[in-house]
Write a protein that binds this DNA or RNA. Sequence first.
DNA 1: AATGAATGAGGCTTCATTCAT
DNA 2: GATGAATGAAGCCTCATTCAT
Lengths: 201, 201, 201, 201
Amino acid sequence: MGTPQQEPQSQAQPRRSDTRRRIQQVALELFAEQGYEKTSLREIAERLDVTKAALYYHFKTKEDILSSIAEDLARPMRELIAWAEGQPHSLATKQEILRRYSDILWGSVDLFRFIQENQATVRELTVGENFRSSMKALGELIKDPSAPIAAQVRSVTALFSMHAGMFVTQNVEGDPEEKRAAILEVALDLVAQAETSVLTG
Amino acid sequence: MGTPQQEPQSQAQPRRSDTRRRIQQVALELFAEQGYEKTSLREIAERLDVTKAALYYHFKTKEDILSSIAEDLARPMRELIAWAEGQPHSLATKQEILRRYSDILWGSVDLFRFIQENQATVRELTVGENFRSSMKALGELIKDPSAPIAAQVRSVTALFSMHAGMFVTQNVEGDPEEKRAAILEVALDLVAQAETSVLTG
Amino acid sequence: MGTPQQEPQSQAQPRRSDTRRRIQQVALELFAEQGYEKTSLREIAERLDVTKAALYYHFKTKEDILSSIAEDLARPMRELIAWAEGQPHSLATKQEILRRYSDILWGSVDLFRFIQENQATVRELTVGENFRSSMKALGELIKDPSAPIAAQVRSVTALFSMHAGMFVTQNVEGDPEEKRAAILEVALDLVAQAETSVLTG
Amino acid sequence: MGTPQQEPQSQAQPRRSDTRRRIQQVALELFAEQGYEKTSLREIAERLDVTKAALYYHFKTKEDILSSIAEDLARPMRELIAWAEGQPHSLATKQEILRRYSDILWGSVDLFRFIQENQATVRELTVGENFRSSMKALGELIKDPSAPIAAQVRSVTALFSMHAGMFVTQNVEGDPEEKRAAILEVALDLVAQAETSVLTG
DNA sequence: AATGAATGAGGCTTCATTCAT
DNA sequence: GATGAATGAAGCCTCATTCAT
């Protein structure tokens, strides 16, 4: 056909040059380190020892590089939402959402951190829009719009406490796995308390 | 050459230059709306109907504009930290920290949101460094390094739950004041639980 | 206010730097010599011994440079059309149109030649659209839509014979003024014949 | 090695490569529509659903594609000139030149229009040089260098009135064939008048 | 208290072209 | 009879900043 620039369909051809993948890797590293705007294509190209034009063989635009990377986060998010929409709105479901969300986050921690730290930039990119709408959907699934405000805030905080966790625990000593578990637990507690406060409040 | 660019010395002449203030206002608006990098001095100048050069009469650099704005947040933060350092590390103190922090945040909500959404950019600016170190100091004051990890995470989450609150509650219906109170309450609860879990855990 | 980039209103300020005018001059020279696309802003800037960025102080885009130049032709064209629309559709009027058109053309001969030779490029620029619609208007004024096709063709040919004249007479020897007069005369003859053929045909 | 890129040797194998022809077709379409410079090889390739590299199998350069297309016009022009050079310089010959020229023009109307609208570009390409020299030769054959300037202008105008006709008659209503005939007639008249004016002037 | 004019650096993107396979 | 991958050159444009007035 011509130029690539699409996601490799299915199991891809054998060794179709791994440059595409290398670009994504290096780009994510630099985006995460310095921010999206401050990372130039020149820099990415230099780090890979190719020319800027080579990047354009593999991706249509700078944003396209980012979009392609962001799929790693966007896809599991979509899947999580799809799954959750098929479940009862029970506490058990909500807690399972948090568990799965935790896995997703820690599975793409660099990418996620990048999105967090570049929200202003990413906001008007497709990537940002997608992420925002995913978060909104998740919010709807975890809170009960008929509950008192305090309970709703608690639920939503559960979700976001896991974001905060990723940043904040840099200042807390301890085994990473243990911290991660602690963060999740705080979140699980919060939804549980939200539920309870509805009943007893 | 006798240009200003210093902090207005206290209450000097009341009308010392209203342009300076207008620049800060417009700049914050634009920074918050579009991000720091994507806001050019040209844009700011145009919005004010002055030339770019005029901005340089009032501020040494672009970063300088931001720094001057950020003082609104940085000063109260310093004050809060100074106050807290003189208090006992009791639960009551921690909760008062959260209450005061809440006031500070909602008092500069636009600026704060801006910093949150431009972390990658702001990170290597003085503004960002200051903010990070303030947050770190606050973290130290609110958590007990000898407590179990779960308790520490809970404490730190208390702090950050208030950040999340500012963004998240856009999707929760209800009176702003009520939401704000709910957010604070969740935070107060979290520190309280941290304390308890230490005792009972 | 800020940057210029508008036509100097009325009789302009004294010596507001003639760079703007120099840019226009050099640009027209180069556009005419090499074509619009093949002339880069780098070239124009180098020829003027300024930086590319200086061009952008005076003009918003490359196209803007061209547009500003083209006003020299566009304004008199608009005036001619406005005038003609207020006249009776007589042969005398049509011949006067041709005379005035001749003056306009020879008054901006380089610009006109440029537009002729860069039609494909200029077509989707404001400049080109304007020129096309002016020519169309002039066409309507010079031909009689109820006349036989042959007559209409003759009229329209009168108009365009003057364009051709500008290029073609490079291969005809003789005094420029005399050639110019000859070209106009052929055109005047053509409208006259168009009229006659209607009557007698 | 062993690639084609030569003119198809006469009737060789009938199906020697239909891609070559398709490239020429699509290229002409795009060149005519958007101009030579603004049409990229990428565009041509995409429209044909082949890669850019494929174009280079069939043609040495972008210009080469154009040159190969232009032969359609260049060959008949050469033939016309060769024929005319063997004829007496009579009015009948001149009129026959115009008739044949009309046929050539309308036989390659898209290509011709393209050359007209891209003169600046084409000027320094072989294609343009050829065309210019053909026009010059035709000019010499149709005018009498010893005639008064007015007569010479009239003759040359005859030739170019047919170019103008191709563009201009878009705004004249009527059957295409009839218009075409009218255009030719105006041209034939013009040479005739040129002759007469010599005799009677 | 501000403007007019300009600069140097660098950004993203596109293009014609090449060459090994 | 083509593709995949890449290059080098260049394009237009924008930005923060400077400085004489």
